[in-house]
Structure formats: structure tokens, C-alpha cells
Amino acid sequence: MIDREAPYTWIGRWLIALLMLLPVAWAVWASLQPVERLFVGAVFDEANADDAWQWENYRKAVTRLPVLRFLLNSMVITMAATIGTVLSCAMAGFAFARLRWWGRPVCFGLVLLSISAPVNLLILPRFLVFDALEWLNTYKPLIVPHWLAVSGFSVFLFRQAFKSVPRAFEDAARLEGATHWQLFWNVMLPMVRPAVGAVAALSAVVHWHAFFGPLLYLSDYQTFPISVGLRMYYKMQGAWPNLLMAVAVLSMIPPLVIVLVAQRHLMRSVEEPSVTK
């Protein structure tokens, strides 16, 4: 079999993996240190066993600014936006893959175009539209568009998934007199569960990290998500790197959990590659 790798590749793999996890490991370590250690102390290795882990750093960190509030806000926004993304993008993907309608090719071209649109440059015009709609300082700009299938990438993923469902299932359902909706909801959607998992996980992570949008659209700090809250923390408490790292670590837990839960769905194509002909 030709599928053999060059010798000692595994060493490189382990080394790079360790290097890549090091920043996160350092952040966890730093979040448990007294602040002086980070300024005068050491890197990992110097003997400092006399100090216990400073678990109260986390208590201090979440009381200096309403960090728990920020985390809660982020969770609300992320959940609402993710549910909307999955539902609306699945519907659009279904229409692109399984229904015939006038203008479909052109519209699909627009979907592909929207995948590569320079989003950070569009944000200023979008800001003005939201301003005109009087949506600023609410969560509407962060949630409503995602109920309208605004993520071209997710639409594309769903379309590919729906396209791969064998035609026979659709025919059988149609013969039974299923409506579009019944076909979509009862037959097709359960069959593309891996795509649902992948889109849900990826979009949840994206919404969790969203920064530029919330920075522009929200001005009351009580409504900030954790991304903007972290920046505020950095500006106000920057001299306390241990507390800053504690907040950073807290903010990385949800994406980490999402990735671990959805790992199988995300890496499906990697773990069982399609057989080449």
C-alpha cells in the first residue's frame, strides 16, 4: 500500500501540537499566578512550588467587571444566532438542492459570491442600514440577519448535503403526498444530521467570537458580549495580566466544549474520505 508516511513524521506532529497548545497552557498557568510572578518571576520551569495556585484570581476577575454578565450575553446571542443559522440555511440549502424554481442558478451564484464577500468592509454600510432601521443598541443586528440565511457558507454546506441524499427518498415521500415542508422536515433534515452538526458548531464558534459587529452596534456595556467585554477588561485592567488571562480562559471554554462535542461531525470528511474512483 502506498499510504505510508515518511519516517519520523510523528515527531514533527507531536512537536507542532505541543507548540500550538503552549499559548493556551501558558494562559491557564498565568491565570493562577499572583500578579508579581508574571512581572518579576519566571516562565514555566523555575521552582515556585511554594505558592499555591491562586484560585481566587477567578473570583476577583469576574467581580472587577461584570464578566459573568458578558458571558451570559454572549451565550444568549450565540444560541439565538446559531439556531437561526441552522434553520434558515437548511431551508435555503434545501431549496437550492431539491426544488426547481425560476432564477435558481443566478441566486446560487450570489450565494457563492457572498461566501467570499469582504465582510469587514461591508460592516460600515451595514451599520448605516441598521441605524436607519433603528436597530442599534439592541441585539437585532446580531441575531435577525442570521435567521435570514445570511451565511453563504452554511447555505452551501447544506446544499451539498441535501444533494447527496438519494433521489429515491424524495420520490417515495412525494408519492405519499408529502408537501415540501414535510419532505424537508420529516425526511431530508434527519438525513443530513452531520451537516446540521457541522454548521451548528462552526456558526456557534463564529458567533461566539464576533467582535467588530458588537463593537459598533452596542454601546451600553451591560449588553456587551464577552469579546467586547474582554477588550474593555484589557483597557481597564491591563496591568493585571493574571486576571486578564483568567477572563480569557473563561471565554475560551465554550468554543472548546463545542469543538469537542462536535469533533466527529467537523472531521467527518477527514476521518472517512470519499473513495476515489
Binding site: 499559548p23 493556551v24 501558558w26 494562559a27 464558534v205 461566539w208 467570537h209 467582535f211 469579546s227 467586547v228 474582554l230 477588550r231 484589557y234 486578564l244 488571562m245 477572563v247 480569557a248 480562559v249 471565554s251 475560551m252 468554543p255 472548546l256 463545542i258 469543538v259
Partner: peptide
Amino acid sequence: LLSGVATWLI
């Protein structure tokens, strides 16, 4: 997937 404001600050 982890990178966001938190990792820039780290």
C-alpha cells in the same frame, strides 16, 4: 476555532 479577542490578548 479558539482564536478571538482572548487569544490576541494572550
